[in-house]
Write a protein that binds this DNA or RNA. Structure first.
Length: 196
DNA sequence: GCTTACCACGATG
DNA sequence: CATCGTGGTAAGC
């Protein structure tokens, strides 16, 4: 039986965004099965509930969990924990390859879909697909992937990508120390994955 | 099983 | 701006 943990509403200091909900799904071995944050509570419920249902066949419950706190810390730009146990075997092999690279992107830096693709001999759209279905929001930093144009690009937050989400992505990157000039990221902040 | 439509992309003109 | 190539997925036969 798994745990579906939902944290309290958070108020955060963005101009266009006055609150966010954070939640994590933790398996019986205390490994992180999924994490999500969104302005719409029902989306969080829906997403984490669905993953939980698939994984555990049991009703998740609400409560508190240190990982949820860690998630909020990450959101606020603090590096709470250096290591988090991620549940294994819930993503495809290709996704694993991509997520492994995401976890190497240093704080304060970004990389591009295309650069990841060439480092694993794949295509940028395929990488986009994988990045978009990252189950471990914030813990696996998919927000550090941007288009080759060095604009912030899209971010879905378990919804269709939209403007609000892109603002969140941009604020996250700024807080992590990525350099912007207007809406463009400076090339200094670009990090290149090592080839295979 | 196979086919197709859909994409958080990229290169080109 | 438009268009096309592209690889991986999931949903539909």
């Amino acid at each position: 039986m798994g745990h579906f943990i939902l944290t309290d509403a958070m108020k955060i200091g963005l101009a266009h965004q006055d609150r966010l909900w954070f939640g994590v799904l933790v398996d019986p071995q205390d490994q992180l099965a999924a994490s999500a944050f969104t302005p719409r509570l029902y989306r969080l419920d829906k997403y984490l509930g669905r993953v939980g249902q698939k994984l555990t066949h049991s009703k998740p419950r609400r409560g508190s969990h240190p990982l949820a706190e860690a998630m909020v810390d990450l959101y606020r730009g603090r590096d709470a924990r250096t290591h988090v146990d991620l549940a294994q075997g819930i993503t495809s092999g290709f996704q694993e390859q991509v997520y492994k690279i995401l976890r190497m992107i240093p704080r304060g830096r970004v990389t591009s879909y295309g650069m990841i693709a060439s480092s694993i001999s794949s295509g940028p759209r395929a990488v986009g697909n994988a990045v978009a279905s990252n189950p471990w929001s914030l813990f696996v930093p998919c927000h550090r992937v941007v288009p080759s144009s060095l604009t912030v690009g899209n971010y879905s937050m378990n919804d269709h990508p939209n403007h609000e989400s892109s603002i969140v992505k941009k604020e996250l990157l700024k807080r992590e120390g990525v350099f912007f000039q207007q809406d463009k990221i400076l090339p200094t902040s670009l990090w290149k994955p090592r080839g295979e």
